[in-house]
């Protein structure tokens, strides 16, 4: 539909300046991109294989089974001595902190509402509606 490299389109936008890529030409940039992708994929995949090789099968976390822990609720685990006091504290702090973060969800709702109102206001402005 739109060929960036065609003669017609060259120079219509200072692409390198826009993307902050003044120091590299397009070819160098493409090579670095490809090499970096290959490097990252190889590192990640080989790390995962190394983990499997060293520690065996991955945790079947969908069954809520962890080493030394059962599927009992956290309070029961603590009472039966399967969780240390510090682990309980860590759990409750994690719970408190994450619930605090999840208060961010209403902030998202406010932002959506904010944006919706902006569109509404823009529409009013365009159409010249007056109250």
């Amino acid at each position: 539909m739109f060929d960036l490299n065609s003669e017609d389109n060259k120079g219509y936008v200072n692409k390198h300046a826009e993307m902050g890529e003044k120091d590299m030409n397009q070819k160098q940039q493409d090579i670095i991109t490809i090499v970096l992708w290959i490097f990252c994929i190889v590192i990640v995949v080989s790390s995962i294989f190394a983990l499997y090789a060293t520690f065996g099968t991955a945790a079947p976390y969908h069954k809520k089974i962890f080493p030394g822990l059962s599927t009992e609720p956290i309070e029961t685990l603590a009472e039966s001595g399967q969780l240390s006091q510090s682990a309980m504290v860590a759990f409750h702090y994690a719970e408190m902190f994450m619930e605090l973060l999840d208060l961010g969800i209403p902030v998202f709702a406010i932002l959506v509402f904010h944006h919706l109102l902006m569109n509404f206001r823009a529409l009013i402005k365009e159409k010249g509606v007056k109250f």
Binding site: L51, A59, P67, F91
Partner: peptide, 19 residues
């Protein structure tokens, strides 16, 4: 969570996993 045995072996007590 993927490899809890790895985490437990190197830097974390097992009972921190629920957190």
């Amino acid at each position: 969570l993927w490899h809890p045995a790895f985490a437990v072996h190197y830097f974390m007590p097992a009972d921190y996993l629920p957190a």
